[in-house]
Simulated scan of single mutants.
Amino acid sequence: MTLPVRPGAVRPAARPAGPDPLAPLLDLPGVREASDAARKGIDRLLGHKVLRRESAGVSTESALRGARASAALEGVDVPLAELRAGAVTDPVVQGALRVSAGLGSMVETWTRAPGQVLARLHVLAAADLADRADLGRPAPHAGARLSGLFSVITGTTTAPAVLVAGLVHAELAALAPFGTADGVVARAAGRLTMITRGLDPKAVSVPEVGFAELGRDSYAAALAGYAGGTPEGVAGWLVHCCRATEHGGLEGLAICESLLRG
C-alpha cells in the first residue's frame, strides 16, 4: 500500500476556539514524557535518508507488517514470509490486509466524515466474519458515544497527535461498535489519526508492531484500564500507546535499513 497523502490531506496542529477538553491528558502521570519520547522516535524515523526516495516502498512494507501485527493481536499470528507469499487465507488476516491496503484512500475523508470511514473499515475487516447485512453498521448502543468520538476526530486540539490517536483507538476498542473485527478497526483508526494529524504523514512507522511487541496481555490490560475510566487507567493506556508508537518508529527504521541494504 502506498498512501497518496496530498498537501491538503494532513492537518497541522490547530488551537481550539474554546476550552480544549484533551489538553489535561498531558498532565496525567507519565503521559507528557511518554508523548515526547514517541514524537522523538517518529521524528528520527522521518529523518532517515531512504525516505527521500523510497517512502512509498517503506509505506508498503509498513502496511504489510502492520496487518500481520494487527491480526496477531486478534490471536492469529502468521509468519511474515507466508503472508508475503500470499499463502495465508485466514479471514482475520485477510481482513487486516484489506484494511491496510485501503487506508490510503481514506486519509482525506477521515477528518470530514469519520463515520463513513469507520463503516468502510468494518466492511473490509469483517467481510468474511460477519453477515453481509451487519457489515459497516454500528450497534444501536454505540450511537451517542460514537458521536462524541467523531467530534474529537473532526475537532481541533493542542494535544499531541499520538494522544489523540491513542484516544480514538481506545474508544473504539472499548466500545466495540460492530461486534466483529473491532480491534482491527480501532487500530486502523488510530493509524489514520496519526497520519492526518501530522505525526506520521507518510505512514512509514508500524504502531501495530509496537503493540504486538509489548504483548497481547499488556495490550488487553492497558485497554481494560482505559475502559475503567480512572485517571490512572487512562494514563496507563496513553503511556502504553506512546511506547507502542515509539516501538513502531523503530520498526520503520528497520524497514528503511533493509531497503538501504537492498
Rank of each mutant, 00 (worst) to 15 (best):
A63M: 08
A14Y: 01
G252F: 12
H141N: 11
P177H: 15
V204P: 07
F178M: 14
G248P: 04
G190I: 10
L80D: 12
P7C: 01
A139G: 04
M194Q: 14
A23Y: 02
L22F: 03
Q94D: 10
P79G: 05
V239D: 09
R11A: 00
V92Y: 08
F150M: 01
S105Y: 06
S59D: 00
R11T: 03
V107R: 08
S258C: 11
F211P: 07
T89L: 11
A254R: 02
S55H: 01
L22H: 00
G30C: 02
G143D: 06
A71R: 05
P24W: 11
G47T: 08
A159Q: 09
V206W: 09
P7H: 02
L124G: 12
P201W: 12
D182T: 15
S151I: 04
G166T: 02
A222D: 04
P4F: 01
L118A: 12
G183K: 11
P29C: 06
E54N: 05
L28R: 08
V10A: 01
H247A: 14
L25C: 03
V50R: 03
A244H: 11
I153C: 07
L163D: 03
R84L: 04
A71L: 04
R32I: 15
R145M: 11
P79R: 08
L223N: 03
L118Q: 09
E213L: 12
L121F: 14
V234E: 07
A37T: 10
